[in-house]
Design a protein around this nucleic acid. Structure first.
Lengths: 193, 193
DNA sequence: TGATTTTTGTTGGATAAGCGACAAAGGAGA
DNA sequence: TCTCCTTTGTCGCTTATCCAACAAAAATCA
């Protein structure tokens, strides 16, 4: 399990349902128009949920977006079973791939992947990436504290992933990742036992 | 509007949502296994709704099935704008077509279109057909009471529609309907002004 | 057959969601 | 600037749903 993994406890079915409806409505709207111009009313109406109920679950739409991104990114991670794994070159490669593709997905099917939306996504993904790297590093012990190494690597990875997505004429993603693996690894390299 | 048309009033959103979830769950299950072997627990679990809540909406699964069929059949009728119309040969033809196709649909995507399921469907569809025919007949006045004529015609239509669906080697539905139009019409024929 | 398990309806108390209203903050246009 | 209008948070009160528990009916199996 990922550190800070969702409690996953048995929630009241009404709560799960309401959250699901809000999330689905939000996802739809975010594909239709600019994140900024999506109002909480829009979300509530689309979800068929009372506006007041929204506030019982999220303080504002930014919190909902954070929650959404965290959840989707974790789903990707779990799909590729990168959690509960030890550090290895293959796992690192897969993690980088996940980040690249996740950003690509967001860019392609969201109306406005830049601005506050982009900022929040960046923060969340780096946070999640860092968390995963830390669990890996803690298992093998690291010279500079795992926090330091994981921080550096997560920033580097996100930066490189974003750069690749910005390029008009992509290398193939596979080639690109082979090219940057050393750069990503250098942050973790000397922390091996 | 159809006589006995759904109130369509502004229901509590929770009620609409719960009904929708129950209906969707039921539809799924009915395609997966025999109607008889679908329990209320199955439906509740699949819908994510508490079992006790089911009973707040329907007395049993038969009532849910009735509700479902009535609703879907009405949707078909409204899609073809047969309601709010006067009696005419074209409208009668379209009505028969609707019944034939509706039975065909049920046969093709339901696991067990016979037994209690079939019986309930037959009852509901004849009921709806009769209601529609009565509104037509009441507009033009009829010699034997509209109830009588509509009853005869609705039974005849359903019987003929079922027969067509039973045949291994169908006529084309179009040809078949032309063939039976006179038989269906005879029940209404002499009620013209 | 009788024993065991599942399903069925129903209840009372707890809790989430709905509703209407409100003041405050923000945006758009005269 | 000043309106006008929309959105935003927040508040009591009402209502629908949840839950656990129960006895009775039905189904399953030895």
């Amino acid at each position: 399990m990922l550190i800070n993994a969702p409690p996953e406890e048995k929630l009241d079915p009404r709560v799960k349902r309401t959250r699901r409806l809000l999330e689905e409505a939000f996802s739809e709207l975010i594909r239709e128009k600019d994140f900024q111009s999506v109002s909480i009313q829009d979300i509530a109406v689309r979800a068929g949920i009372n506006r007041a109920t929204f506030y019982a679950h999220f303080p504002d739409k930014y919190a909902l977006l954070e929650h959404q991104i965290r959840q989707e990114f974790r789903a990707e991670i779990e799909k590729r079973t990168l959690n509960a794994c030890h550090f290895s070159e293959d796992n690192l490669r897969a993690l980088i791939l996940t980040v690249c593709e996740f950003i690509g997905e967001a860019n392609s099917h969201c109306k406005s992947p830049r601005g506050q939306f982009g900022q929040l996504m960046e923060t969340q993904i780096k946070e999640q990436t860092k968390g995963l790297l830390m669990t890996w590093l803690e298992q093998i012990g690291s010279n500079p504290s795992p926090v330091i190494a994981a921080t550096a690597a997560s920033w580097a990875i996100y930066g490189l992933a974003q750069y690749w997505n910005e390029q008009k004429d992509h290398d193939s993603l596979g080639e690109y990742i082979e090219k940057i693996m050393p750069l990503a690894e250098v942050n973790l390299q000397f922390s091996r036992a």
